[in-house]
Amino acid sequence: MFCLWCHEEIIPDITWKNVFQFFGKDRKLCEDCQQKLPYIEGPVCPTCSKPTEHGEVCRDCRTWTSHPTLGESLIQNVSVFSYTPFMKDIMAKWKYRGDYELVNMFKAGMEKRFKDNFHKQVLTLVPIPLSKTREQERGFNQAEALAGLLGLPMIHALARVRNEKQAKKSRAERLQSKNPFQLKHRMDTPVLLIDDLYTTGTTLHWAAFLLKSAGCPKVYSFTLIRS
């Protein structure tokens, strides 16, 4: 096996356990790269996973709750990693260069965080969609790729109508933007939205609002990165 990120060869230790396990789990990352992934630990904001000093609700979320329309729609966001320079490099290669295979780097972290937070609930995964043209350019939808790691039922309930790049906008611009989604399927079971980044949370709040107003009982979100 070779490390997905640095391409160093991984030579696994031979133990009694894996000698007999011919089809055991392959390691996707070498020890060094695994260490560098910034898994969020310690106290975080209970509603959006942003690291806070004593685990109190962060300022972003306090502003969200007072939002007139979108305030109550998203119950909680859980994120796996924080946005370090290393993570930025990975995202650039994965999303913008289009190196799809890198999604497997996140598998262990995604599974662990999911088990710790959502194992009790029965949730349907809804990946945040990309616009048609962007998906064609890239060849894949990163949210769908992430949702695929969890191996749970997935429904494409949303479609994107407006084709705007979030990354190029300022915070104020993002908060003022209009609903970028359209509903394709009504959901009547609890939903877990999947996306790659939670920055201001605008995208996820709009998606949650749309699902909720169409009768969805509960909407959570699960994102790879809280930046």
Binding site: Y100, E101, G139
Partner: peptide, 15 residues
């Protein structure tokens, strides 16, 4: 080489 799942056949790309 990497594969991107897509219908009808996956896209193969050079990493």
């Amino acid at each position: 080489f990497g594969k991107i799942p897509q219908k009808p056949s996956p896209i193969v790309y050079c990493r």
